[in-house]
Design a protein around this nucleic acid. Sequence first.
DNA 1: ATAAATTGGTTGACCCGTCAACTATAATGT
DNA 2: ACATTATAGTTGACGGGTCAACCAATTTAT
Lengths: 160, 160
Amino acid sequence: MSQNDIARIAEPQPELQLQQFLTYRLSRVQAKLNAQASRVLREHAGITLTQWRILALIGVEGLRRSADLSRHAALDKGMVSRNIKLLVAEGLVVAEGDDSDQRAQTLGLTGKGRQLVERTLPIMRKRQNLLRGALDAGELAVLYRALDKLELAAEAQDFD
Amino acid sequence: MSQNDIARIAEPQPELQLQQFLTYRLSRVQAKLNAQASRVLREHAGITLTQWRILALIGVEGLRRSADLSRHAALDKGMVSRNIKLLVAEGLVVAEGDDSDQRAQTLGLTGKGRQLVERTLPIMRKRQNLLRGALDAGELAVLYRALDKLELAAEAQDFD
DNA sequence: ATAAATTGGTTGACCCGTCAACTATAATGT
DNA sequence: ACATTATAGTTGACGGGTCAACCAATTTAT
């Protein structure tokens, strides 16, 4: 306790680091993936990642209702609502009333929106392939399995 | 195009889903890990995850300066600053001027802060072990490798 | 038929994390 | 020695994401 006179409760814990390291790694990788996609989309299409997802869900997956988007892509419905409004204002999306359900609105792409998706799809696919190419099939399988297990463990409520 | 008359730009793309699925999975797992830790800390110690990290870095790792915390745990320095202020206000941390560097302050735990860390450490270790037990060594290794590769791929700037 | 519960969508509030600007002090270069 | 550059820490602002309240319309149960 002479030179290094720091009040410690316990010796540094590699275990503690591991846990924090894990969530740290996960959030970091995810942040970088998002940042990369966001950059491309901003430069190439002038939209955000969320907006791209919405456009792709409408234009590629053929979904037509906000609620479907939320469910399909686990997007918050509030966020979908706000972004739809933006996309409509920018003339990329049309939202017209649905006859069969007065609450709902039917979503679709405008010509401009369709053009933008068509123009953007190839580059996003390219990126896709880059990412996919980074992992071999075995790694991908283990990654998914590990994430499943972690997610399950993270749901435990009764370990205390 | 009869019954399912939806204007699509392309057929639904499993590849697109994969990418979004990947970031979706990552963010989801991470969110759950955070939520779990946050819940435990809130119920058990009345602090947030960030605050716990700070307390542990001071009390367990023995760090004494804000800047060291930021570097060590990749926490934003602004966030550290604000949280330190809260922790001081709650009487868990002391921050006194540093003689050798007028800009810096020396951080330490109060008795109350030390007690709280001592009380909270065991349960966080328990959680730690739960998570660690969820993956075998091989899975953990592949997980790390896969995250490394993905992170690298996510840093590529010139794929377009 | 009508009350209750569910669903679609909008809006406001809030937290977390990041970034930028700024002040004060220290270290470095010439 | 003095000007430049780097560092410690504070603060304000912003975007992404979650949550809750709310309205209108629709489905379900009794």
